[in-house]
Amino acid sequence: MIRKSFFLFIFSFVLTTSFPVYAQVNAEEILATVLKRSAEVKSFEADVSIDVDVDFIRIPVKKGRVFYKAPEKFRFRATGFVLVPKKGMNFSVMEMLNKKNTAIYVGADDINHMLKIVPMTDESEFVIASVWVDKAKKRINKMDVTTNGQGNYIMEFTYGTMQYDLPETTKVTFDIQQVDIPLKFIGNLKVDQKKAGERSKGSVSLVYSNYKVNGEIPDTVFDETIEN
């Protein structure tokens, strides 16, 4: 009897440990949890500073205020001219993940679950995305997106102590094409012909502060015709 019980124990131990742990983790569930938590943010406004690091663009660090209202209203306001990265704002990521996708669990490190997101629609702007989701906090720490013809971009998020999953810093690293601006009177841009048209890496760092989440933001804020 003891012998039988011992073999049964060994069998069940082998059975439960012979498959990788992550095989038991449901990627769709993780993604759903992330999206559910992000959906708690209906609107927000925050101060943001934007630091652009592209080798052929020199622009000082710009400060402004960003406004967002679900599902897709966005406005950046600042004095002067600002380059705001199209990709990598927190809500644009959520908008992307909210579309019809398939999530596949591919592994984990000490801190994150690692998922692959494959879009299930033809119109999708991306081909595949790797997403690192914090195991404990269930929020996205990093994302590597391969787009449909516009190269790769990587987003890295750090968070503060807020109850909402809104980042304190975001760093977006992207591919950017060397520009060849065809005008003389606005300067004398000497584009390296070897580099012209080539894609090179650039990055933008955004630092957010003074968040005001789920407050009332009038629609007029998002009106393009209103001057900064």
Binding site: F76, R77, T79, G80, F81, K86, I181, P182, L183, N228
Partner: peptide, 16 residues
């Protein structure tokens, strides 16, 4: 038109 190539990556906010 001239800085269109930047608009692939950036939203251009403000008047130049």
């Amino acid at each position: 038109f001239l800085i269109k190539s930047l608009s692939d990556v950036f939203l251009l906010e403000g008047k130049l």
